[in-house]
């Protein structure tokens, strides 16, 4: 085991819904059972935690014995699918209390699913969720725009971005356009 001081918490990456929706590639860093699982985002960075702020438009309670909640969180570019089950009791109870529509901040882990008919879906397993205000949402759009542009500027120079190029054939201009469109929806 690593000494305590060497432990670094994985940062929560900022990503727009339309980029997360395209995410397909997942890998495990190391052979250990407990090695972390990452996804590679199309703009070229590994991530096992993300931070999103948007509008919770819908939530649903599902399951009988294993109760879990699903929700939809909308940002200027699309929709995030979030879920919280009995393995995240705190997150599930927080989500249960929030009545849509509401601005929410969500910290969670991206998860990939393949449906029986072969479609790949990305959902976010919630670690914590809280109601925030519009200003926080706007700050998040700026923050996410900035970090996405930073990743695009470094595209092709890092191992993760070369991997992204290989897996997705990312066209940086497409994502610049997405960032631009997201920013135009922030009201002055």
């Amino acid at each position: 085991m690593k000494p305590q001081s060497a432990f670094e918490r994985e940062p929560a990456r900022r990503v727009f819904a339309s980029e997360l929706r395209e995410t397909r590639y997942q890998f495990r860093d190391g052979d250990d059972e407990k090695s972390p699982t990452y996804v590679i985002l199309p703009t070229g960075i590994r991530s096992n935690r993300i931070f999103i702020v948007g509008t919770l438009t819908e939530k649903q309670r599902q399951g009988d014995q294993n109760v879990f909640y699903r929700g939809r969180v909308v940002d200027p570019t699309g929709t995030f699918f979030i879920m919280a089950g009995s393995y995240q009791p705190e997150a599930m109870q927080q989500l249960a209390r929030i009545e849509p529509p509401a601005f929410v901040a969500v910290v969670g882990k991206p998860n990939l699913y393949t449906t029986p008919d072969g479609n790949c879906l990305v959902s976010v397993r919630v670690e914590s969720i809280a109601v925030v205000d519009r200003e926080t949402r706007d700050l998040w759009v700026l923050d996410t725009a900035r970090e996405t542009l930073d990743r695009l500027d470094a595209f092709g120079t890092t191992d993760d971005s070369r991997k992204a190029q290989e897996e997705y054939g990312t066209q940086p201009d497409v994502y610049r356009k997405i960032v631009y469109d997201a920013l135009t929806q922030v009201q002055l």
């Binding site: 542009l149 201009d173 356009k177 960032v179 631009y180 920013l183």
Partner: peptide, 21 residues
């Protein structure tokens, strides 16, 4: 708390490559 700065938005719009909206 960090406050929303409209100049920041303008700067990012420029950086994203479009003409300012």
């Amino acid at each position: 708390p960090i406050a929303f700065e409209p100049e920041e938005l303008a700067a990012l719009l420029n950086r994203a490559g479009g003409e300012p909206a």
